[in-house]
Design a protein around this nucleic acid. Sequence first.
RNA 1: GCCUUGGUGGUGGAAUUGGUAGACACGCGGGACUUAAAAUCCCGUGAACAUUGCGUUCGUGCGGGUUCAAGUCCCGCCCGAGGUACCA
Length: 920
Amino acid sequence: MEYNFIEIEKKWRDHWRNQKIYKTEIDHSKPKFYVLDMFPYPSGAGLHVGHPLGYIASDIYSRYKKQKGFNVLHPMGYDAFGLPAEQYAIQTGTHPAVTTMENIARYREQMDKIGFSYDWERSFKTCDPDYYKWTQWTFIQLFNSYYCYDEQQARPIKELEEVFAQQGNKDLNIAQTEELHFTAKEWNEYDEEAKQRVLLNYRLAYLADTWVNWCPKLGTVLANDEVVRGVSVRGGHKVERKLMKQWMLRVSAYAERLLQGLEKINWSDSLKDIQRNWIGKSEGAFIRFPIEGREETLDVFTTRPDTIFGVSFMVLFPEHDLIQKITTPEQKQEIDAYMKWTASRSETERQSEVKKVSGAFTGAYAIHPFTGEKIPIWIAEYVLAGYGTGAIMAVPAHDSRDYAFAKHFNMPIKEVIAGGDISEEAFESKEGICVNSDFINGMNVKEGGRVVIQKVVDMQIGYATINYRLRDAIFSRQRYWGEPFPVYYKNGLPYMIPESELPLELPEIDKFLPTEDGEPPLARAKNWHTREGYEYETSTMPGFAGSSAYYLRYMDPHNNDEYFSKESNEYWQNVDIYVGGSEHATGHLIYSRFWNKFLYDLGLCVKDEPFEKLINQGMILAYSQFVYRILGENRYVSYGLKDQYDTTPIHVHVDLVHNGVLDTEAFKVWQPEFANAEFILEDGKYRCGSEVEKMSKSKYNVQNPDDLVEKYGADTLRMYEMFLGPLELSKPWDTNGIEGVYRFIRKFWKLFFDRDNNLVISDGEPTADEYKVLHKTIKKIEEDNERFSFNTGVSTFMICVNDLTEKRCNKRKILEPLVVLLSAYAPHISEELWSLLGNQESVYFATFPQYEEKYLIESEHNYPVSFNGKTRFQRAFPLDMQPKEIEGAILQDAETQKWLDGKTPKKVIVVPGKIINIVF
RNA sequence: GCCUUGGUGGUGGAAUUGGUAGACACGCGGGACUUAAAAUCCCGUGAACAUUGCGUUCGUGCGGGUUCAAGUCCCGCCCGAGGUACCA
């Protein structure tokens, strides 16, 4: 029998589907293991070879874990709400649901061809009403909760109402939008509307006027993680700052837990660091400065209370509430002009001119709490609205931004920490001795800071506090293709529709554009909400709403009464291995952790963290190939000779190039303009130039997995994608090496057949040498699998097969375990060989082969060594050993003799610490 | 700027706790089979020198250090990739 992968793969694909081999159910007799891929957004372009990289790795691991006796949950679904389908709908009028369904069908077809072991019965897409019902449900729970810092968890808002009625909001340590003060009496006298308004200040999903990233081109607001360097991640459009009433999620309340949680999960340090930076915890002090001649105070947050004697001016962000109140008539014009100027500047402009100093003086002065000095109050763009109090005390001697500002506007720079030279630049070190600083002179920075904080506490003008960079997430999008909010409005205040009415389905509308008066597309919907006479929310939820807890839904995807059953969650717990790209570090992976922690607080799920271990697969780039056209001619010159001519490089389709050599005939046929092309060759060949770029249609470098599956088979593709290099690394796709893997697969196949392609398997007892090969392979593959090192895993197989081919080994006792071993990597061929060996059940259910140590120990580098009275199989010898040849000396104890089995080694060659060879 | 990574043959990459650096594969060169090609198989392939068998020296971005032993650990640089950036 020839190795006919087309037939074999189709046969087993059908078999797996028909027999529902990959159906997973709760099984308390086995330990669970949950392996998850980040589900894809089904785009119109289909999958290219980069997409399946992570899926193949997780599939190998799932199959491996299954073989080790775990009950493995390995699901797949689609992140189906999103901008591209909606943009397409606006252009063509095709409903996003239609586009999405088509794309999903294509994705599914492509994935099926690669032989994944997903349990497709658990699959769903985020735009299914059955699914987003629970996204909406969670939103309602967020709305009905507040966050208690003392308990470090979310609590029902009802509880808070009772507390307010009894004691007002004094001394409550809870998350809030702004600081309010009211007594129980005041609360009880509020009418319903006023109470609701106050409660919004504490809800975990709340409505507030916020400065948002508004993208006019996309017609919607964007979250911080959706904006990079002042432009939108999707499309790269300009983003403006705008004050809008938006739904927000109080993610910031969870900042500390999100930070702490990182300690107990197994993610890469770099990813944890990205999250730590994003959360941005900084310890410092809140200090209240009096303003000369006014009742209002100027509140600042600083991490350097020790530098308070170096303050030479104060700065507010340009839209700060205080500005209108404190600006003096003389300065009014200047301030107004400055505010007008900053308002006109887009986020993009601001970001690109970070180094440029600008600002204006309000004419007002703050009073230094210790010295009584007058400190001028300025406004400037470099102070941010969303961080701290939106106001700073500027200490130019010890902060480079304040330094630049002081230099530019000619303000005093006063050294208060010794150790630097402030004549040229700010001294920002946090080590040093306080000078020119009254009662903290001579103390070090830390101590000085402590004393200052103590002092402001005594004076009741401040306290030590912690600030986080993490902001609340903007949760409204002015788009159609997303989850509708289960919200209606009464007198401008939001109310949730009852849970019994969920899901609130997305209505049909005639056009997907915003309305003429700028309302989101949903405002076009007619007779949608059943509540006549009330306004309803016309925004929809952002992309991360549906993707924040989808992994929980896989545990119990068809449950219509609950998000997921208690039983299923107690069994599956959380994701053991999560595989996906690191581009989600500050978006999805923060929101998911937040969402999960909230559900944990509700008592819905048993685990506080959603993803125990995270594997980041690298991006697959592509080599683009170039030909060099001589300027103004239809002649093309080979890469090595191109410098002798005046040429332009032209992208050429990668399929026309093999190992850097252009197939000139195919090139002529490729496009009409090349039909009469002439070539200047080197060594009789046309060599192309190449460059590493992202995969893109226009660069003719996209590699489609379907083509490769057709040419080499899915098993070869799977193994080759793994063989390419370490999973985490970004690397260029290079089809050239795939032949090597293909050769290996056929070589493996040939072990089972004779010259005439008859199955010939011997039942003979393998030799010790053959066992050694097998056991070494098993041990190595197991190690490679456990650390997700599938590139070395593939190599291990190759070495083993080369070895067995040389030994002409066709013994069942060797080959059968190898088939099981290989089935995680190359399931189709393994399944075929497994059944040819006479097995009835699918190889998917076979257990991982065990090895016997007696053969293993004979492998190189593992020798029994007696040390401290124990015999171990190890490489290293005691440290005092010198390099030499030892004649029998170290192998004389009883244990070692037993292993040597009467044989006497002639000579043992060691380098210090390691045996190189034993000569018998 | 700050944080995180990484730098090994012509190429992708091995080397798990410091222990024969370059596994495995591609490419390249040579050979066998063949009328020929494809396929397959075998040999060689870090560099330099030496060469009829052993062989010698140098080699993991650069410069130092620790160690019997360093790609791996420490100190100081250089370069690349990713993240982040007026976060007070």
